[in-house]
Amino acid sequence: MKKILFFAFILFSANTITAQDDSIVNSLDKKNEIKLNAVMLLVGAFEMSYERNLNDDSSAGISAFVPFDDEVFEDYNYSISPYYRIYFSRKYAAGFFVEGFTMLNSIDHQKIWIYDNNGNLLEKKTDTYVDLALGFGIGGKWVTKRGIVFELVGGIGRNLLHADEFGTTIVGKFGFNLGYRF
């Protein structure tokens, strides 16, 4: 009985190994990626990205950033950032890259609270402005054969429209993105 079970186990294992080799799809055939920034989730914000691989060494994408922890991101409302990347690796749209990006960001500048004599809040005013930034970044991307994407990226940019009025001139991008290439 033990010999029959052992033989059945060997046959099942060999069949499973063969089936796994057949099911692996080359990540070169896939052009789309969706990613989630794991670092920002830990600190209180949601950032998701979509990227389209244009060819072996370039891609274009867009990311959306929305904070959900007001204590960490007190004045920051959202940002939307389209980007273009050039890869310097022999792998398809992976490895070391440089990127140029624009960022549309919304920030609360001035908050005014008006209280009555008893300390009750009567009115709250907030001046919100939207600015446009240009910047660049660097990073690295690793893709498994099954299409799992690991990415480390950092960048810096400068607001162009209201930087002199409100004093928020520098914007940044940072993340450890996890995703899937499909």
Results as ranks from 00 to 15, higher is better:
residue 10 I to H: 11
residue 38 A to S: 14
residue 101 F to L: 13
residue 81 S to D: 05
residue 107 I to C: 01
residue 143 V to M: 06
residue 20 Q to P: 03
residue 53 N to A: 15
residue 24 I to N: 03
residue 17 I to F: 12
residue 175 G to L: 05
residue 71 E to M: 10
residue 158 R to V: 08
residue 108 D to I: 11
residue 36 L to T: 05
residue 160 L to F: 08
residue 41 L to Q: 07
residue 168 T to L: 01
residue 58 S to E: 13
residue 177 N to V: 06
residue 181 R to T: 04
residue 145 K to F: 04
residue 115 Y to F: 12
residue 8 A to R: 10
residue 8 A to H: 06
residue 46 F to W: 13
residue 134 L to W: 07
residue 123 E to H: 09
residue 14 A to Q: 15
residue 128 T to Q: 05
residue 138 I to G: 11
residue 151 E to Y: 01
residue 161 L to Y: 05
residue 1 M to V: 15
residue 55 N to R: 09
residue 11 L to N: 13
residue 22 D to F: 14
residue 67 P to H: 05
residue 146 R to E: 11
residue 110 Q to S: 15
residue 67 P to G: 04
residue 124 K to G: 06
residue 167 G to W: 07
residue 85 R to M: 12
residue 71 E to D: 14
residue 126 T to G: 01
residue 172 G to P: 02
residue 68 F to T: 06
residue 176 F to L: 14
residue 63 S to Q: 08
residue 150 F to E: 02
residue 110 Q to K: 14
residue 59 S to W: 06
residue 83 Y to E: 09
residue 53 N to G: 08
residue 45 A to E: 13
residue 171 V to I: 10
residue 32 N to W: 04
residue 54 L to R: 05
residue 67 P to W: 05
residue 163 A to T: 06
residue 16 T to S: 12
residue 83 Y to H: 13
residue 156 I to H: 05
residue 128 T to A: 04
residue 177 N to R: 13
residue 74 E to K: 12
residue 139 G to F: 01
residue 62 I to S: 08
residue 142 W to A: 08
residue 37 N to K: 07
residue 55 N to M: 00
residue 50 Y to I: 10
residue 113 W to P: 01
residue 18 T to S: 08
residue 164 D to Y: 03
residue 146 R to K: 12
residue 75 D to N: 12
residue 35 K to E: 15
residue 130 V to W: 01
residue 140 G to K: 15
residue 76 Y to N: 01
residue 125 K to M: 04
residue 110 Q to C: 05
residue 19 A to Y: 01
residue 162 H to Y: 15
residue 38 A to Q: 10
residue 143 V to A: 03
residue 105 N to Q: 07
residue 140 G to E: 14
residue 118 N to G: 11
residue 107 I to V: 14
residue 40 M to P: 02
residue 29 D to L: 06
residue 58 S to T: 14
residue 23 S to P: 03
residue 16 T to C: 10
residue 34 I to K: 01
residue 173 K to E: 02
residue 97 F to A: 10
residue 102 T to Y: 10
residue 8 A to P: 02
residue 98 V to E: 02
residue 152 L to R: 01
residue 51 E to A: 05
residue 43 V to G: 02
residue 114 I to P: 01
residue 47 E to I: 04
residue 93 A to I: 03
residue 178 L to P: 02
residue 130 V to M: 09
residue 85 R to F: 11
residue 113 W to Y: 12
residue 77 N to Y: 09
residue 96 F to V: 12
residue 19 A to M: 02
residue 59 S to Q: 09
